[in-house]
Design a protein around this nucleic acid. Structure first.
Length: 737
RNA sequence: GGAGAUUUAGCUCAGCUGGGAGAGCAUUCGCCUUACAAGCGACAGGUCGUAGGUUCGAUCCCUACAAUCUCCACCA
């Protein structure tokens, strides 16, 4: 064997061996139960980052585990065309090449988009392969593939026929950067400092941060309880920019304590104003976009200053709504868009939580429900070029990219056709995704799946956290604390990346990653490698000592077998609960502390290669979903197995290997040795030990003197305390000599 | 404003149905012991956020408070 595991050489060899053997291919197989995981398709706009690596590793662990449990496991890979994001990227790329994207024809532009798709889809596939994902590549799907297009068409038309999709002139958030309408979910909030202007409308002064919208004002609103303004309600005031007479109205919405307590109403350019305007039957005045710029604001201020209407300026810190893609402030505007009626679609999605949909971790259930219970109609039209055209004759708008993403779990399996794949693999079992896209994607998949197929798209959704750095900070370019997963693979190998990403994480918190984890994992893999070397030497005739027969199990054998049985139980339970972080930690601890530090040491004088072999190979199986390469290498190259670990069965505890008596004895044996070592390294140990014993005895006496404890506590516990006390007294006597 | 989560050793985190606080790393000390110095052995480190309550017994259950974080809503 080499000195260390040569991952650079072996990992690609092993992966290609799997590919050549069609090992990841899932077939329709009536003799087996299917287990389907559809991959959330990464955008074709970027390289895979550490967050992708984490999520994809979690999925691959699930699939490999289920495959070993005998399921027909399908991991279906794909990539997303990411309409808006790709649009931006392609424009940038064209400008770099000296082409003005606005001067070429639509057809030409779309051709460049197609090119982009091709190049970056291949790049993404390559990166996924480097992560060691056991995907069925024959089923790779791109969100612009014909099957997806057919699904989009079918779903849109069905919803349209049902009257759930409608076109209407309504208040929507418009992004001046993306030059498109957005859905509510696509709007984020950012805290910024702005200037608040106090402006006189005759007798009433209002405070506003957007004086450029004054020409759109149709009223001034005050709180009906506000005594200061009661006398003005019902009168009119003059718009300081247009000279128009506008009414003073009373509305509960107005906060008396905020600003001057008087609110200008601009129904065409503010969400709240639109509602107030509608309540009072006011007709909105729609302004042109060029009249809503920063320059327009400065012009308005100039005019107001000259006329004396501007009475005060003050700094104000508050939230502004921005586009989640380009982060530019969005402009609420009345415009004609396509909407999806949500009320009826949301109902079954809400009920799904009682009808077979599990959300893991559970804490996301409330977030899921809250959003669905407060859902508004979904603006599905976008004014950008790439993406799916709205399938109505003459429409130039495209669909929100999430409209097609929502169909992902079934369009990838052949729907709307009732294909054998669809019949067998749908509904899918587990969807793994980041909690950030619960609204964008997960909820929309649920209601779209129920609506289109009559079934839930998945039995459960598992949410993963956001990968942070060692100190818990977000990884970001400006902090320079980002870690490129491909770099870890280059330096340490895929096994190291996968295990180090997983170990110590919990699903309900954000995972943390640092280079330290990578080196620790490298050391662990080296440990596994060397323990295997020890086994090879054990078997070499020159070194071998007369080994006991398999039936003649030594105490150490019985101990490790019992310990390993317990490990299998515990690890399997954790895998089933998707608690891979703790499973990984337990596996590592068992191997290092129990198997290497104690069992190997006990095997240096006499040994039992059969037991060693059994435990080692079962351990390799147990950890292989997380660490597929080095385990496969040892499994085939060193242990001489002909078939891949992929097709091995996941270990189940062996009832024969349960020796509670010998187990306890060996644990005591370990304790004794530790005490001896301790005595050796610390001369004054005896004095110390006496102190501890005295304390222990005092504690035991106190506990047993407590009548409540003796009467109420379980009998075994009381008995245990009694014997412990006696033993300690005996020991103290011996040491006292 | 509404909701949720977290708080355990210097750091990062485990602790299943309440029954004497655990790991890894870091620190300190001693070791090249024939699988491994990417290693081995050992010591030291904790009023389990604060204050009450339930219980024979609370890190665990209940109440209040505090700090940190996240999501949602958003007031001109």
């Amino acid at each position: 064997m080499d000195k260390t595991f040569d991952f650079a050489k072996n990992e690609p060899l092993i992966y290609n061996k799997w590919l050549d053997g069609n090992a990841f291919r899932a077939e329709v197989n009536p003799d087996k139960k299917p287990y389907t995981v559809i991959m959330p398709p990464p955008n074709v706009t970027a390289r895979l980052h550490i967050g992708h690596a984490f999520g994809l590793t979690v999925q691959d662990i699930i699939v490999r585990f289920k495959r070993m449990q005998g399921f027909e496991a399908l991991f279906l890979p794909g990539a997303d065309h990411a309409a808006v994001a790709t649009d931006v990227k392609v424009r940038e790329e064209l400008k770099k090449r000296g082409i003005d994207p606005n001067k070429i024809s639509d057809a030409e532009f779309l051709q460049h988009v197609e090119e982009w798709y091709k190049i970056y889809t291949e790049q993404i596939k390559e990166q996924m392969k480097r992560l060691g994902l056991s995907c069925d590549w024959s089923r790779f799907t791109f969100t612009k593939d014909p099957c997806a297009a057919k699904a989009v068409d079918t779903v849109f038309n069905n919803l349209y026929k049902k009257g759930l999709i409608y076109k209407g002139s309504r208040m929507v958030n418009f992004c001046p950067g993306c030059k498109s309408a957005l859905s509510d979910a696509e709007v984020e909030y950012k805290t910024v400092e702005r200037t608040m202007y106090h402006i006189k409308y005759d007798t009433i002064t209002v405070a506003t941060v957007r004086p450029e919208t004054i020409p759109g004002d149709v009223a001034i609103a005050v709180n009906p309880k506000d005594k200061r303004y009661a006398k003005f309600v019902g009168t009119t005031v003059t718009n300081p920019l247009t000279g128009a007479k506008i009414p003073v109205i009373a509305d509960d919405y107005v906060d008396m304590k905020f600003g001057t307590g008087a609110l200008k109403i601009t129904p065409a350019h503010d969400m709240a104003d639109a509602e107030i305007g509608a309540r009072h039957g006011l007709k909105p005045i729609i302004l042109k976009t060029e009249d809503l710029t920063d320059e327009a604001r400065l012009r308005a201020i100039e005019v107001l200053k000259k006329s004396g209407a501007l009475v005060k300026e003050q700094k104000y810190t508050g939230n502004i709504s921005v586009c989640y893609r380009c982060f530019r402030p969005v402009e609420p505007t009345i415009s004609e868009q396509w909407f999806l009626k949500m009320r009826d679609l949301a109902k079954p999605a809400i009920e799904a939580l009682n009808n077979g949909l599990a959300i893991v971790p559970k804490k996301y259930e409330k977030i899921y429900l809250h959003w669905l219970n407060n859902i508004k109609d979904w603006c599905i039209s976008r004014q950008i070029k790439s993406g799916y055209k709205i399938p109505i004759k003459g429409e130039t708008d495209t669909l929100d990219t999430w409209f097609s993403s929502a169909l992902w779990p079934f369009c990838t399996l052949g729907w709307p056709d009732n294909t054998p794949d669809f019949k067998y693999f749908y509904p899918t079992q587990t969807l793994v995704t980041a909690y950030e896209i619960i609204f964008f994607w997960v909820i929309r998949m649920v209601f779209s799946g129920i609506e289109a197929t009559g079934k839930l798209p998945f039995e459960r959704v598992v949410f993963t956290g956001l990968v942070r750095d060692g100190q818990g900070r977000k990884m970001s370019k400006s902090l320079g604390n980002g870690i490129d997963p491909v770099k870890i693979i280059d330096e340490f190998g895929t096994d190291v990346l996968r295990f180090s990403l997983i170990v110590g994480t919990k699903l309900d918190r954000d995972p943390r990653y640092s280079m330290e984890k990578a080196t620790l994992t490298r050391n662990f893999i080296n440990k596994i490698w060397n323990a295997t070397k020890f086994f090879e030497n054990m078997q070499t005739p020159a070194v071998a000592t007369p080994a006991p027969k398999a039936t003649a199990l030594r105490p150490a054998d019985k101990w490790i077998l019992t310990k390993f049985n317990n490990l299998i139980k515990s690890v399997t339970k954790k895998y089933e609960k998707f608690d891979f972080g703790v499973a990984a930690a337990e596996l590592q601890h068992f191997f290092w502390a129990d198997f290497c530090d104690w069992y190997i040491e006990e095997s240096k004088q006499t040994n039992n290669p059969e037991v060693y072999h059994d435990v080692l190979s079962a351990f390799l199986k147990l950890i292989s979903p997380i660490m597929p390469f080095v385990t496969e290498n040892i499994w085939t190259e060193v242990l001489g197995n002909r078939t891949s670990l992929l097709s091995a069965t996941f270990p189940i505890p062996n009832p024969k290997y349960n020796f509670p008596k010998e187990f306890k004895e060996f644990e005591q044996h370990i304790e004794r040795i530790k005490t001896e070592r301790n005595a050796k390294s610390e001369a004054e140990n005896a004095v110390k030990k006496i102190e501890i014993l005295k304390k222990e005895i005092a504690r035991g006496e106190q506990v047993l003197a407590n009548k409540g404890f003796v009467d109420h506590a379980p009998k075994e516990l009381v008995a245990k305390e009694r014997t412990k006390l006696e033993e300690n007294r005996k020991l103290l006597k011996e040491l006292g000599k």
